[in-house]
């Protein structure tokens, strides 16, 4: 029980580690300072802008409740856009994701080009897609739906093909061994394994589409975003607040419902 032989410890990490961590810390702080000076923006701006905050907040309240009756049809239009776009994208994504799955189509000349096209689609921002389609079809709901379809197709196809690549290959071997062709292998051994995830991804993409369609309205692609853009540019803040509250509530409800369904599925 003697305490004579206690070793001298330098704490939990060695001095060398401490030195290195300090150096990294200083470099990172320096990096932040550099970017802040270069962009001429700092936390001080937040303080200087406080009057703007207060002005906007004051003009947002109280919301103009009677305006809600004008907002509701637009909200429903937004939901319609999201539903149509998600459904179409989900249907198209099935064959595309199957073709992108390296375990079903091991030939790289099949899955690589399909993946490449989907990667290209995914890199185009949704707002740019909306601008392009508004240019093609004119202002309205249809270009918005088109933009959402392309945008969610890239997303869904990637999520889905990664799921397909992680399935159990044993049943596939069994169906092949009993004389099933490729389509039969897909319907009997692949689809039952990925269906729950597929529905779950579909619901998730629906949520994303509802939010995305708000932004798309700003470039004239229909829905509630169109209304929001209009009221903001007229500086009609009580109406803007009404729209924001309605969007907030509906997004929360949709997220909640789809989360509950997804929990049940997996």
């Amino acid at each position: 029980m003697s305490k004579t032989n206690q070793p001298t410890l330098q704490g939990i990490s060695s001095n060398k580690t401490k030195l290195r961590i300090s150096a990294i810390f200083i470099i990172i702080v320096g990096f932040y300072l550099f970017t802040s000076i270069k962009t001429e923006s700092s936390l001080l701006d937040l303080w200087n802008g406080k009057n703007g905050f207060i002005n906007i907040a004051q003009s947002l309240f109280p919301p103009h409740w009677s305006y809600a009756s004008t907002v509701m049809p637009q909200l429903i239009e937004t939901l319609h856009m999201a539903i149509i776009a998600t459904t179409v994208a989900a249907l198209i994504s099935i064959p595309i994701s199957l073709l992108s799955a390296a375990n079903l189509f091991p030939n790289p000349f099949i899955h690589q080009p399909v993946r490449f096209i989907m990667n290209v689609l995914r890199t185009i921002p949704d707002i740019l897609l909306a601008l392009i389609f508004v240019g093609i079809f004119g202002v309205g709901v249809f270009p918005g739906i088109m933009a959402l379809i392309i945008f969610s197709l890239g997303l869904l196809a990637k999520l889905l093909y990664e799921t397909i690549e992680s399935i159990d290959m044993n049943p596939i071997e069994a169906i092949r061994a009993s004389g099933g062709n490729t389509l039969q292998v897909i319907t009997y051994a692949v689809m039952p394994q990925v269906l729950p995830q597929f529905v779950s991804f579909g619901l998730y993409v629906f949520e994303v589409n509802v939010r995305a369609s708000l932004v798309l309205g700003f470039v004239g692609a229909g829905g509630i975003g169109l209304l929001l853009n209009q009221q903001v540019s007229w500086a009609n803040y009580p109406n803007v607040m009404t729209i924001i509250i309605i969007i907030f509530i509906s997004v929360v409800i949709i997220d909640y419902i789809s989360n509950k369904i997804r929990e049940r599925l997996i």
């Binding site: 159990d168 044993n170 049943p171 071997e173 069994a174 009993s178 039952p192 394994q193 269906l195 729950p196």
Partner: peptide, 11 residues
Amino acid sequence: MIFQNYNLVKR
């Protein structure tokens, strides 16, 4: 064919 891991579609 019958397999060691049964190879049924479990779902």
